[in-house]
Design a protein around this nucleic acid. Structure first.
Lengths: 206, 206
DNA sequence: TCCATCTGGTAATGGGGATTGTCAGATTAC
DNA sequence: GTAATCTGACAATCCCCATTACCAGATGGA
């Protein structure tokens, strides 16, 4: 079981196959489309046998679930890091930093927003639950920043729950269109629009 | 061919079956889910035969395409009507009227946003094209109102293209969450948030 | 009333693809 | 060097469901 083959441990070979499958899935799901992608295609693209597929995943849906979570987790990491290296800046700076880190993370590869905001929508109940968890998580992030701004006196003291959800939707919508438009929209302009919109949404009078 | 049966013209019976299929599709796509719905289920729910299905539609996808277009068209009609019966009011009133009409139309049945913003996403290229056309259409609507506001001097004279796309995303996001949340979000609060957000987005200084 | 025609439901067909069994080859321990 | 074991590719199986052929019954005209 734990015996090493070709000088490589079994566990490591499994991990590499998993990695290759995820990479292939990101590629095929965002070009062929999730529904149209066959497991056999996935395995061919990854250079792995169908047998191996079932050793790592239960279904195509589970691969998508993992990818969706990875993309969000990576973005969260980037945002958290960016905010951490900021000390205690003013609210406007924190918000700009947060948004820029998010946009930079998700636009680093056009396939990421495509997968997250198009292919992973409405697939099944599990994915919808995961989507909802992430929306709530991002919204709470934004809410926290809004309250921070309110504490500094640059925003009114009110509930920011719906504003936060709306802003998550605005960002999602822009990034979805970004990867769909031809000619493509300009990333810097999108980032600027998001910053301006969020600042205006939070600082508007109650 | 054109012979009447049971006192009902052939054309009318066709139209009724089509109607029943669309109704059944709206119900099943938003509960079972589009991908999980079988054509046989659809026919059973509608009370028609599979034969009849293929007389009206080429595929399940086409039914979804028609429903998606219907929901958007209905909302557009409502919005256009509301604005028409307004004379030349000020920009703020026009924007509030437009948004309220849209929200009222799409929230009149929770299945509508579910179908439009969850089930109809990422299904195939045809639907993505139709989605894009509607986003552009709604965005142009919003842009026009923003320019109107600028002409009245309540908003700066700038490009509102990205702002409009972002606002479409914000509305979409809120309505998507509205139908997903338990306990449900309050419709009036959502409408108020959308009005506030749009006004702030447009009137913010350039 | 009877026949030609139309209608719609049921059941057969066929294809596509997910899942699993098998086997030849590779690898390591002894 | 050899046997025992593990690995992964291929192919066979099986099932599900979209699509269509067929037929029994209904309908209206003559």
């Amino acid at each position: 079981m734990g015996r090493s083959y070709g000088g490589v441990a079994a566990e490591q070979r499994r991990a590499e196959r998993r990695e290759k499958l995820l990479r292939a899935a990101l590629q095929l799901f965002t070009t062929t489309g999730f529904a149209q992608t066959k497991i056999s295609q996935l395995c061919a693209e990854a250079g792995v046998s169908t047998r191996n597929f079932y050793e790592e995943f239960d279904s195509k849906e589970q691969v998508l679930l993992v990818l969706h979570d990875l993309i969000n987790s990576l973005a969260l990491q980037r945002v958290t890091d960016a905010l951490a290296g900021l000390g205690d800046a003013d609210a406007a700076t924190r918000i700009a930093t947060l948004l820029d880190a998010f946009v930079a993370s998700v636009t680093s590869d056009p396939r990421l927003p495509r997968l997250n905001y198009v292919e992973a929508v409405g697939v099944n109940a599990d994915l919808e639950r995961q989507h909802l968890r992430w929306v709530v998580r991002w919204a709470e992030f934004i809410e926290a920043e809004a309250r921070h701004a309110a504490a500094q006196g640059v925003a009114p003291d009110r509930s920011y729950r719906l504003t936060a959800i709306a802003l998550v939707g605005a960002v999602t919508g822009l990034l979805r269109e970004w990867q769909a438009h031809d000619p493509p929209l300009d990333v810097d302009e999108i980032a600027a629009e998001i910053r301006g919109l969020m600042f205006a949404a939070i600082t508007r009078p109650a």
